[in-house]
Design a protein around this nucleic acid. Structure first.
Lengths: 149, 149
DNA sequence: ACATGTGGTTGCATTATGAAACCATCCGCC
DNA sequence: GGCGGATGGTTTCATAATGCAACCACATGT
């Protein structure tokens, strides 16, 4: 059999995250939801993906508690897909992906989009990793241990 | 035809990042590389994935400049897969994925692994998003604009 | 009532994934 | 230098996921 391997039971949080949101379309849907998309048609038009795929992804996202269905904001009988708190919490991941993409996947001068502070309109600061005592940490300054909680 | 859709030319950095590292196994390989894995066999044993899949993924990672091949550190005729600077730069994404997974994919008390400061052994601080002026930003405090650079 | 828009589902062709078998080197040992 | 096992893959073949297109039910506008 060639069933896609599941990492749901891994003890590594990264694996479990990837199991849920480690899919191109899934992440693009969340991105669009963060930018304000709410309706099936909005996602479909924005992403240009096949409707059956979109339907499957949206269903999975709702099941995983990242999106939830609620009555359409425009008063129609349709429903809106809106991010839950769990879905909104994906924001830092999105920012990290965005910054890496900006750094390594664009030629200088190539048109792109940037994330700005809504209040000032200025580009946001880069994500930084800090130790508990506030020291700036780089790659190599961290390691993984199994939690003894 | 049912070729997997490519997002390589999207103007959204998130899309381009996902195109490269938005794959479960790919991210797991990078994770293991960050934890010190260097050899084909190490990745294969740690991840338990089929060797053909691993071979394809490793080749892609080398082509994308995330891993590079260098003579084995143990002096043998084999080669090591080691992270490039671009590969090391994935670290913040890994941390963001890890924190989200910790928060939403584990029951309290469930065994997991945590990331610690190598010097102090203490758990690292959560990633925070800041504005250019230092203000802490939450979900909803940011927006996307097309770069006019 | 009728056309159109929205939000899907179904069918079928193509592609990717995965387990197992196979194969070419490389290494340690005698 | 010859032999056995370890290493690092490639090949084969079955199954699962993806994607296009066609279809469909219901809501809405006129």
């Amino acid at each position: 059999m060639a069933k896609r391997t599941s990492l749901k039971d891994s003890t590594c949080p990264v694996a479990r995250s990837m199991e849920v949101i480690g899919d191109c379309w899934t992440m693009m849907i969340i991105r669009d939801a963060m930018l304000g998309a709410r309706r099936f048609g909005e996602f479909q038009k924005s992403l240009g993906l096949a409707k059956n795929i979109l339907a499957v992804r949206l269903k999975a996202l709702v099941e995983d508690g990242i999106l939830k269905l609620e009555p359409a904001a425009d008063g129609s009988a349709y429903q809106d897909y809106v991010l839950t708190e769990k879905g909104q919490a994906v924001h830092p991941i999105m920012v990290a992906l965005r910054q890496w993409g900006e750094d390594y996947a664009f030629k200088p001068g190539e048109p792109t989009t940037i994330m700005v502070d809504r209040k000032t309109g200025k580009q946001i600061k880069r994500l930084e990793l800090h130790a508990a005592d506030g020291r700036l940490l780089g790659y190599g300054d961290t390691t993984i241990v199994s939690s003894t909680a």
